[in-house]
């Protein structure tokens, strides 16, 4: 599904990713853990196409195509989804209009007919229930005045609406209380399928109690320095990142 080879990226001349390798196969859930400043969010941003970052080396193949050559919207239409760590508030743009436009673009790209208003509303109802998102929220402006938990649930709701093949969750657990965490995880788990893959980026092991990964990677100084089964997350939780730092050094 996605293969990252020797990816190097920098921002303002400072190298953050220093030769990162990762392969995600269909249906797999990969967790990427690492201390602050290790490059976790940079990886998510580079994959989604944020222009602030400069890719200096390496390749990313997504379903056989070069991901890095695509504009952000093309990546999205090809099936990549980024759940933002800090979803932006957009006053004046209603969630519904925004989603209607986004779903419309996805369907057009896939050669599907546009949804009728009725079909669209039915889909909204079905998918918002997944994350226990109040119907009222869908009518408000995008993320405006949403609590931290509502914003993250809204991200998962959008993911459910857009049905990506690869979803990257960037610290989706940050700022969530235990109930919101459970709801967000439940939404993600409902979407797990043999065709859909996830890359779950997190600082803490806690989220991985709910979204159980197939593989855990440790990112440190812009490289994957350790890969292991889900138990690796528990080990990190217990020993902290210093243990990894020492191992690498």
């Amino acid at each position: 599904m996605m293969k990252i080879e020797n990816l190097k990226a920098s921002i303002d001349g400072k190298e953050i990713l220093r030769g990162l390798n990762l392969e995600v196969k269909p249906g797999e859930v990969h967790a990427i853990m690492g201390p602050n400043g290790s490059g976790k969010s940079t990886l998510a941003s580079v994959l989604a196409g944020r222009e602030d970052y400069e890719v200096t080396d390496g390749t990313v193949t997504f379903n056989g195509q070069s991901l890095l050559d695509m504009d952000p919207e093309i990546r999205a239409r090809e099936g990549l989804f980024l759940a933002f760590q800090y979803p932006v508030e957009i006053p004046g743009v209603s969630n519904m209009n925004f989603l209607k436009a986004a779903v419309g673009e996805m369907r057009k790209h896939r050669g599907q007919d546009p949804l009728t208003a009725k079909e669209f509303l039915a889909l909204v109802k079905e998918k918002s229930a997944l994350v226990e998102l109040d119907g009222q929220l869908a009518n408000r402006a995008v993320n405006e005045g949403f609590s931290g938990g509502e914003k993250k649930r809204n991200e998962v709701f959008q993911m459910a609406m857009l049905e990506p093949t690869l979803a990257i969750l960037d610290e989706t657990d940050s700022g969530l209380d235990i109930d919101a965490l459970r709801i967000v995880a439940q939404g993600v788990n409902a979407m797990r399928s043999p065709e859909r893959s996830f890359v779950v980026i997190t600082h803490y092991q806690r989220l991985l109690d709910y979204i159980v990964p197939d593989v855990v990677h440790v990112l440190y100084k812009g490289q994957i320095v350790k890969t292991g089964p889900k138990e690796l997350a528990l080990e990190l939780e217990e020993k902290g990142y210093d243990w990894i730092k020492e191992t690498v050094a």
């Binding site: 196409g49 999205a76 925004f98 986004a102 673009e105």
Partner: peptide, 18 residues
């Protein structure tokens, strides 16, 4: 905001208009 909309599949032009 512009990046957020594009990351959901809206074209740059469409996102700006929105």
């Amino acid at each position: 905001a512009l990046f957020y909309l594009r990351a959901r599949g809206l074209s740059e032009m469409g996102a700006k208009q929105m």
